[in-house]
Design a protein around this nucleic acid. Sequence first.
DNA 1: TTTCTCACA
DNA 2: TGTGAGAA
Length: 258
Amino acid sequence: MKSEITISELANLMNVSVHQIRYFEEKGVLQPAYTDNNQYRMYGIEQVYQLAHILLLRKLGVSVQSIKICMTSYSVDQYRQLLHYSSREADAELLRLKELQQFIKKVLHEQQNFNSESNQYQIKWRDTTYFESWIEMGSHTMLNAKLLAEQAKRVLNLFETDIHYIYDGSSTITLCLETQGPGDFSLPEGNYLSMQCLILEDDELEQMIEQLYDYAAAQSYTIAGPLILIERSYLSLFSSKNELHYELQLLIESATKS
DNA sequence: TTTCTCACA
DNA sequence: TGTGAGAA
């Protein structure tokens, strides 16, 4: 009985595809022990170890091209360096995954928030928030790709964060992104009249804004700041319809509420 | 089942 | 750096 195994047996054993094993052979990193009369590649225990080493080096981020050099000529010191490098890469990947998980949690949290508060007026306390202004545009301009490309400062993870549109009554709207520390400007802490809404058409948004002002007037709230429109486009992605998720906010002076 | 080759992401 | 498909 032969002690060697066929390519599919090796593939099964090592949890890789037959294709991949042949690919390693083509690149000169893994040769079969011998080729049988029927032209089948046959592999022994030595090749099993070799393949295990190749797969480990691939996990460490070594290219197939470099694996040959690694396996034939690397010193202990060079392997040490490689391990250090891979460790740093793994740290970066961990960070990336942690950020992704935070984002997912945020979406889940915001989704729940949105569902329970949609189309209801609320008073929300907001701590001082700092912003970096991102795009300035005319109050009747629509956000378009050209504007984004030409005017916008480069931003990481576009549309994965809340975008604040600040309507301060002038002829321009400022699109801002929240920052941790002091940025270009800030919104004061205080009570904000808030409403979350789902919008299909742009004119619906204008109606919502009007309604918010009407409601504020009816409640005799004194408006003490600009209109803030928060766009959460990442929420729209995860809802079934093509609706856009917005929140409208107005700073009010609660002391003057009758 | 395996081999080889070409196309494709 | 692989994978998929097709013919032998």
